[in-house]
Design a protein around this nucleic acid. Structure first.
Lengths: 192, 192
DNA sequence: ACCTGAACACCGTTCAAGT
DNA sequence: ACCTGAACACCGTTCAAGT
């Protein structure tokens, strides 16, 4: 769950094509949005369109692959923050970093929304990695009594990603996301 | 802004076709989702597809028309709640009703998301009506000092609709939305 | 085992012809 | 003024043929 999805042994050319597809998709998604035609991604990668489908059966799977490193980094960051002096600040810091990244990348916000809303097996790695990261920090803060107990990691993730998704694209997206996250964090903290 | 978009005088048959299109779209969106082919909606309404495009140039415009009555009702409800004894409870009640409706209707949640995220003129009626409703209740609560002053009506709407959108479709959607809205409302209230 | 481009089915949008 | 179905362009997905 904390390790990326298996990388089956691929023939050298297949491996190279897969990497080109992910790189091309990253650029094209960023420039032209997440609804860009699949054929355009294949063309940008210099491979046939059927090769794209063979490697990434759904657009969501491709989106997940594009953001694999960021998702891994968010998970690693959550492990670091488990050592933060204040449990609720550890959680708040992680959620803020998540919201900041999502609010500046429609592509990432969409990848996370796909993984959090649907149950699809093609995005289970993303869903489980994010869930593990959030659950560890949330659980610690709840045990310390600084965050309300009547909420789950899945709900917190949906809420914060919804903030990112709703602010993305607008003017001043980061600032807006930050403002909304402050509201959410205040709501998450236990009442005295 | 508080009145629905102009209903230009239409010939009797055109008027009837427009009503059939809205009714058909409401049913088809509810049964098969908001991405259903436009041709299927026209067929369900018993009119040619070009008639659909003539009347509703974009899918968003059609979605807005489908939810016209609900949006009107939400606006009317906000006017009623301005007379609630407690300003922050008036706001909380309205936001809860909004979240409940959105979390049980992907079609409504999508219509609102379209109107709140984009600046498109084709959904300006929805955006402005919702904004007027939220702004009145929020302003009253902020003046009373019970809700934090550093947030705008547009931000509150995005946040609450994001809650609806994120919970919609899942199991126990209403309950989940209610839970998340409690968190959001706690975050919105001024700290003592 | 993997790649390719073409074929196929489908959908959004426009338009010439009708009433 | 409005309606219609067909035409057109485009996109997702599959498949026969290649290496």
């Amino acid at each position: 769950m904390t390790t990326p999805p298996p990388r089956p042994a691929l023939r050298a050319d297949a491996r190279r094509n897969a990497e080109r597809l992910v790189s091309a998709a990253r650029e094209v998604f960023a420039e032209r949005g997440v609804d860009v035609p699949m054929d355009d991604i294949a063309r940008a990668a210099g491979v046939g369109n059927a090769t794209l489908y063979r490697r990434f059966p759904t657009r969501r799977a491709l989106l997940q692959a594009v953001h694999r490193d960021e998702i891994d980094a968010l998970h690693a960051r959550s492990q670091e923050l488990l050592a933060a002096p204040s449990p609720d600040e550890g959680l708040a810091t992680w959620l803020r970093e998540l919201a900041m990244q999502g609010s500046t990348s429609r592509s990432l916000a969409t990848a996370l929304m796909n993984a959090l809303k649907d149950e699809g097996a093609d995005v289970s790695w993303c869903r489980e990695t994010m869930h593990a990261a959030a659950a560890a920090l949330l659980d610690r803060a709840q045990r310390a009594g600084s965050v309300r107990g009547d909420i789950t990691a899945g709900q917190v993730l949906k809420l914060v990603n919804a903030v990112a998704f709703a602010t993305e694209g607008g003017p001043d997206a980061q600032r807006q996301a930050d403002r909304l996250l402050t509201v959410v964090m205040d709501g998450l903290r236990s009442r005295d």
